[in-house]
Amino acid sequence: MASKKNININLKIWRQKNGNVKGQLVDYKLDNVSTDSSFLEMLDQLNEQLVSQKQEPVAFDHDCREGICGSCSLFINGRAHGPDTGITTCQLHMRMFKDGDTIYVEPWRSRAFPIIKDLVVDRSAFDRIQQAGGFVSVNTSGRTIDANTIPVPKENADKAFEAAACIGCGACVATCKNGSAMLFVGAKVSQYALLPQGKVEATQRVMNMVRQMDEEGFGNCTNTGACEIECPKGISLENIARMNREYLKASLK
């Protein structure tokens, strides 16, 4: 076999006790990492080693570990979710690394995503944007109409579905040189703008979501397109353009 099954790696991991103190990159050596393990499993292995050495384990976000919850974050070797495209960190495998590699592991960096501990950041800014308009109001008085009774053109349904695939992981913000959240907001605005159910609140939705996004302290989009490349769900820049259109329409009303 050409490649080694187990590799030894050097890690540089951001450690920070909480949001009020300064953090720093700390060096760790981890031996015998299976190339079949995921990046998060590698971190589990590191934490076991740290616990056995009576040290504080590294805090990192994770939940479903199958690429759909959007919990896991991590800026790995200079890229959101590490050196692969269309994946979350739980889907990143150690076979992407070589024996003896030094791997930088840093939290999402954004003023709007304050660090809670180590690699864990507070992404509730996204929740507040969503609450500002990322919904449709439905009458639930007991005579709710089935959504499928309203005809939707196939192309629009597909595009809305693609936009709705956003898991709100924050990779777009993390990778954007401007720390902009426009891919996230663009996807959330598009998802409703494309469907008849979303038309009712279209004007307020885009205005409120953009205002909330700006208030949270995200940067301004300059169309570098980095978000689209690093998005684990392949959300397209087209969604930002659609948001720009929706915003122009709404602000001229």
Partner: peptide
């Protein structure tokens, strides 16, 4: 834009592989 965008990331990354996801021109406007 430049001032606000710099402020949107007060603490930078130790390692950034920007060329993996965007063009040189777009990053240096």
């Amino acid at each position: 834009l430049t001032v606000q965008n710099k402020a949107a990331r007060p603490v930078g990354y130790a390692k950034v592989n920007a060329s993996a996801s965007s063009s040189l021109a777009s990053r240096n406007m």
